[in-house]
Write a protein that binds this DNA or RNA. Sequence first.
DNA 1: AAATATACCTGACTGC
DNA 2: TGCAGTCAGGTATATT
Length: 270
Amino acid sequence: MPELPEVETTRRGIEPHLLNQQVERVVVRNARLRWPIPDDLDVRLSGQRFTKIERRAKYLLLHAEVGTLICHLGMSGSLRLVPHNEPIAKHDHVDIELASGQMLRYTDPRRFGAMLWTTELAAHPLLLKLGPEPLSDDFTADYLHARLQGRKQAIKPFIMDNAVVVGVGNIYANEALFAAGLEPRKAAGTLSKKHCVLLVDEIKRILAAAIEQGGTTLKDFVGGDGKPGYFQQKLFVYGRAGQPCLKCGTELKEVKLGQRSSVYCTKCQR
DNA sequence: AAATATACCTGACTGC
DNA sequence: TGCAGTCAGGTATATT
C-alpha cells in the first residue's frame, strides 16, 4: 500500500537507472489498470530517453524527450529494475525495456494503479486539482487554517482530501492526528491556528521520517523485489484498535470515517 | 458547494 | 481441505 513515502522512495530508487536511458520497447501484458494503458504506449515511448523522474502527490512522472509517462502505484503496485530475461510472474503487467539491458517492470496484483501517457502534462486533469505537497513550504499552518474555515467535515477526511494537501493516506492521517492530539472526528472548521501548527508539523515530521527510513531500502530496486515494504516506523494507533495507547494506556478506539478506519485515543486526542 | 457514497480489484484472513 | 464472505485502501466519479 504505497503511501507518499514509498512513492518517493521508488522515485529515488529508479531514477539513477532511468536517466538518459533509451527505451527499446514497451511490453504490456495486461492493460487493464484503473484506466486502460494506452494501446500505442510502445509506439509513443520507444526510442526516447528519460530526462527527469519526478513525483507529484503519489504520481510518478517519468519525463521522456517528448511526453511524460504518468504512473500511479495504486494500492499494491511496484516498479523495479530487472534484467531483460527476468522470468514473468503472475502480476507483472508492464515491462519498459531499456538499452542498458535492464527493464523497468510494473507489478500490481490489485490493478488499482495507472500508467498513462501525456504530451501536455501541465494540463492533465489528474494533476490539475491537486493541493500543495505536504513537505513543501506551500503547506503551512496559515494555509491549512485558511482552507478549513467554515468546513464541518471531520478533520481526518479533510486532510486526506487531495485538493487540500496531497499524499496523506489513511495510515499517516491516523498517526499525524494522534501525534497532534486531535480527535479524528473533530470538525475541520473548529481547529485553531495552534491546532493547525501542530497538525502541519506532525504531518511533515512523520512523512519526512518515513522517507528517510525508505532510503535504507534503495538497493532493493535493482534485481530485488522492488518493494520498499513497510517502513519500520513505529505506528502509535494505526492497526492498534483495542490495544492500549502507547502514551497513556487507555484502550484505543476505532470508528469509521468516510469508510476508512480511524483509530484514536479518547484521552490523548480531543 | 460541500459532504458522502460508490466503484475498481485481489490477497489475506475468518468462519463454517 | 475448501468454500464463501469480509476487509483493506487511493482516488475519480456519481449522488445526495
